[in-house]
Design a protein around this nucleic acid. Structure first.
Length: 422
RNA sequence: GGUGAGGUGGAUGAGUGGCUGAAAUCAACGGUUUGCUAAACCGUCGUAGGGACUUAAAUCUCUACCGAGGGUUCGAAUCCCUCCCUCACCGCCA
């Protein structure tokens, strides 16, 4: 969530930026500030009254010690009257604090200066393109047909075992998944990311920390018997590793990577977007996360983008990098770059990575801080990105590299996969 | 799942109703000493939110926090209740 101090000190700027994100309820900003004023007023009253009670209680203790019973009793009466004042103040204060938090949580992150205006994916800015689109041979088919032809993925079987969106990988399909995971993790750890294997279910506090709760509850699978959520991305458990931690400045940057399956309900998706591997309820992804000094977060973002870019390049896939416009960005992000690879047989771009700087939006919720040189605790910035999401990469690898004599794998994968052709 | 014992600051750990926001030790940081390192010695060493200081910083002061949430009491780290977690033993089990 946004820091209150920013709302108070840069009110107009905040409103301007929220408008770029096409946020509708800009009046919330003023409401929040008014509530905060009230919070301060009530806090003052509460503290004052409480101080009186504490002082009187201390006196009672001393009087009792000296055996002055009557005086002590008189003091008790006094405290009694303070307390009747305190109760309504406390009630009101609790109420105001809750309201304040409820409203604050509804504000999305502010987009950075670089974010283009716009409402739909069409308004995203293409920053770079790379690679070349392949010339497919006659009779080339989409990946779901290739998956069947080479016996790599069984979508029907997934339907039977669980439901749609839960494919079963088999034979060389399963092995290629394993090869991709291994390759991606190695690539990330070589760049200094520490590898983690986190839990795949998280509690409420964790889901709240990265911003999945309260606003995106419907996107996660909810295990109600134990109040756990299946993770929609490794970002959730991995970023929360440092929840409520005060780091040393020298500890930054913290770079972490993790492979996990990801679970998403994807309520409301339908049609050709969900065909084959395009959109799944369970998929595999390798994620990178960084916690950095606030002054360095945009350098870190560029660094992550080129890290992911080199990875995509190594797979020899045609790709483009988009800077998302205000309307297409996520709730928690300040600046997001999406990576899309070209799926030749489907003739469409598929998103395979999303690299974002969250600035202090997540760390404010999670209280991830570090001590600066003055010894003051300040919020770190958090970033993350996919490096990479597997299914759409797999779709493109299959489609783009299909030949009459099988599917030719890029050089970097051959060692991990054990052969150069499927 | 059952029984028992616990959860205190970065760590160890003292503290069973008021003088404890919390002893002591260690770690960390700053300094003195030193050719360098080590040792020794001195000092600092929680977070958040108010208020004062006619901005800020610094400072002072108040409030809250000893797993979480309630309760008892003039007063709670300390007593009571619920929940969570850890450890030990038993049960079950990859």
């Amino acid at each position: 969530m946004l820091q209150l101090a920013i709302l108070r000190n840069n009110t107009d700027l905040v409103k301007e930026r929220l408008a770029i994100k096409n946020f509708k309820e800009i009046n919330l900003v003023d409401e929040i500030i008014a509530l905060d004023d009230e919070r301060k007023k009530l806090t003052f009253q509460f503290d004052e009254t409480k101080a009186k009670i504490n002082a009187a209680s201390k006196e009672i203790g001393m009087l009792m010690g000296k055996g002055q019973k009557e005086e002590a009793e008189a003091k008790k009466k006094e405290v009694e009257s303070f307390k009747t004042n305190l109760d309504p103040i406390q009630k009101k204060l609790d109420e105001v604090e809750k309201q304040l938090n409820d409203l604050l949580v509804r504000l999305p992150n502010l987009p950075s200066e670089k974010v283009p205006k716009g409402k739909t994916p069409e308004d995203n800015e293409v920053v770079r393109t790379g690679g070349t689109k392949p010339q497919l041979h006659k009779g080339a088919v989409p990946h779901w047909d290739l998956a069947k032809k080479y016996d790599l993925i069984d979508f029907e079987l997934g339907n039977k075992i669980t439901g749609s969106g839960f494919p079963v990988y088999k034979n060389k399909g399963a092995k290629l998944q394993r090869a991709l995971i291994q390759y991606f993790l190695e690539y990330n750890t070589k760049a200094g990311y520490i590898e983690y294997m986190p839990p795949l279910m998280v509690n409420e506090a964790t889901a709240y920390g990265t911003g999945q709760l309260p606003d995106k509850e419907g996107q996660m699978y909810h295990v109600t018997a134990d109040e756990f959520y299946l993770i929609p991305t490794a970002e959730v458990p991995v970023t929360n590793i440092y929840r409520d931690v005060i780091l040393k400045e020298a500890d930054l940057p913290i770079k972490m990577t993790a492979y996990t399956p990801c679970f998403r309900r994807e309520a409301g998706s339908y049609g050709k977007d969900v065909r084959g591997l395009n959109r799944l309820h369970q998929f595999d992804k390798v994620e990178v996360v960084q916690l950095v000094h606030p002054e360095k977060s945009y350098d870190a973002l560029e660094d992550m983008v080129s890290h992911v870019e080199r990875l995509v390049q190594s797979l020899e896939l045609p790709y483009r990098i988009l800077r998302l416009c205000g309307g297409d960005m996520g709730f928690t992000s300040a600046l997001t770059y999406d990576f899309e690879v070209f799926s030749a047989a489907q003739d469409k771009w598929l998103e395979v990575s999303s690299v974002s700087n969250f600035e202090s939006f997540q760390t404010n919720r999670m209280k991830i801080r570090f001590k600066d040189e003055k010894g003051k605790a300040q919020l770190a910035h958090s970033l993350n990105g996919s490096s990479l999401a597997l299914p759409r990469i797999l779709a493109c690898l299959l489609e783009n590299n299909q030949t009459e004599n099988g599917i030719q794998l890029p050089v970097v994968l051959q060692g991990y996969f054990g052969s150069e052709v499927i």
